[in-house]
Design a protein around this nucleic acid. Structure first.
Lengths: 322, 322
DNA sequence: TTGTAGGCGTTATCAA
DNA sequence: TTGATAACGCCTACAA
């Protein structure tokens, strides 16, 4: 491995001069600088990140932590994060799993964006106490080193409920997310608020944010079927499970079972009939996250951010029978 | 920041003793070791990765480089990679974009898996020459430090062609990938071989592996339409673009336009009619990649690996009119 | 069993 | 403008 020491030897200068030259400092003659750069190139010199990071106490890398690499929400989100990170001079690495958590406290990265319920708040707070900068996308956490960029879940839930009610549905089944999921809890709050205000009945069906939850919900709905029902799946993936399970039954979506989801993932637009759902810009969400994290790192005061949502209509919701 | 020096001071021992204790060496008494560990915990000690990496010249981190975080193929692939990486004692980070390439030569990671045409072979070979370990999933590269884990593209293309021919199609349009794409080139080889052998006519339509390519292909097919045609889209995403474009036309897929894709991405099973395509285990692909990379890093000799494919039938392909 | 000391490759301070 | 030198935090012979 060739280091600045080798370059120094070859160029007949000291290592500090080499370092200056390599970092484009003007403390060194253009002439020597050119010679050094030339030699560096000849020797195929490549700096060692660990050494630099150790000395500078920063890596210029941002990390994002996901529960799982599978999952349709991530593509655009990560893309948005990457674009902004790069624009602001940072690299982005995506990680998943408990093993990788230590990259933050061990200073392999300068900050973290968290979208992973399995990353415990206690752990996050502990890191924040140690001075590490964090942006959370899936919980509320009050700490000067932590910023929130959250979906407007309540508004989304309200939009969904309103859409069902506009179509005449007065009893609405809700397929929830897994216990403890922030998104699920928030969406439920929106649901309850809207339902109470409108005097509409809601029936909770416990779900898991996975297709399996939708399948189970479908089975229960078929078992208990008496008349057309309305269902708000708290995410699209469960709605897809529900579609799948209903596919070879005599029940028709948008006719016997009216469904709306949340997330507007890509598959949703290809479902027959098209799934009504709640949309938000995943890319913008990612962009905001990166932006906030960099601000946090540079010591700026930052307010929490919010990502807005809107309704996507679809024939998965039809008029309730009069 | 608390370092082993602080622990040493607190415990009244030398830093080397602390280091030994922390690393579970048996060169130190259980008693002192326990005391040191205790103090380390009290002080909230967290090792510094940069320092460790600098000294040990390894990071126990694997990197995977993607063209873009969007793209339906990645979820399962990354999941497979992560599982195996972790099992073998490595962490996995996912990167995208030219900026991040330097993580390999700068030794932030111990090896790289490349699935990114934008990562130039010349650059890869240069890194390999420097001793860095690489697994490529999207090209053939002959170098002792590089291993290949490739899809059996030719076999897949042959399966697809055979399926169309079995259904009586004797003139087949091929929507290709972007220029220079390894997958596209290999699949075309399989196409040509099969076509020649069967004496079937093929018509190439240049594509881009994106939905837009499928849209354009659809437009051309409609313009030139005289009788039912068969189309092999060299990936599913273009097939989806084609579906989308045809959706509000009078042309029916599986009737006027017969389509088969390649990749079996998730959306494909929800298309109406279901898209015929070529499937392979993306997860297994990722698992193999990680496995090979770790072997390479530990200095083992490794053979190139291959991922096998199979046909998924679908009503997007119907019988040709007699 | 523990301590001393050198070094991993950089950066950055202070002299020269 | 350049050079010597001391860190950064950790590991690991080698010495005690």
């Amino acid at each position: 491995m060739v280091s600045i020491k080798d370059i120094a030897k070859q160029a007949g200068v000291s290592i500090s001069t080499v370092s200056y030259a390599l970092n484009g400092s003007d403390k060194v003659t253009d002439e020597t600088s050119a010679r050094i750069l030339q030699i560096a190139k000849e020797l195929n010199y490549i700096p060692n990140a660990s050494a630099r990071n150790l000395k500078k106490r920063e890596t210029k890398i941002l990390g994002v932590f996901l529960t799982d690499f599978r999952g349709d929400v991530y593509g655009d989100l990560l893309h948005g994060m990457k674009e902004i990170s790069n624009a602001l001079g940072y690299d982005l690495v995506v990680c998943s799993g408990k093993q990788s958590h230590k990259m933050l406290p061990e200073r392999m990265i300068d900050g973290a964006v968290v979208l992973d319920q399995a990353f415990e708040s206690e752990e996050l707070l502990q890191y924040a106490d140690l001075g590490h900068k964090i942006v959370v996308l899936d919980r509320e956490l009050d700490h000067p080193n932590i910023n929130q960029v959250l979906l407007d879940n309540k508004a989304g839930a309200t939009l969904a409920m309103d859409y069902l009610m506009e179509n005449g549905h007065r009893k609405i089944h809700i397929v929830t997310g897994p216990e403890g999921s922030y998104d699920s809890i928030q969406r439920m709050k929106g649901v309850r608020l809207t339902a109470e205000r409108a005097g509409v009945e809601i029936v909770e069906i416990p779900g898991d944010f996975l297709k399996s939850g939708g399948v189970q919900a479908a089975e229960r709905l078929m078992r208990e079927y008496k008349e057309p029902v309305a269902v708000f799946c708290l995410n699209d993936e469960m709605a897809i499970g529900l579609y799948n399970r209903l596919a070879d039954s005599q029940f028709r979506i948008g006719e016997h079972i009216h469904v709306i989801g949340f997330d507007n993932i890509e598959v949703s637009r290809y479902l027959q009939p098209r799934l009504a759902t709640i949309e938000y810009s995943k890319q913008r969400w990612g962009e905001l996250a990166s932006q906030q994290l960099v601000k946090l790192i540079s010591g700026e005061e930052v307010e929490h951010e919010r990502v807005y949502v809107k309704l996507i209509e679809g024939h998965s919701v039809g008029k309730a029978p009069a």
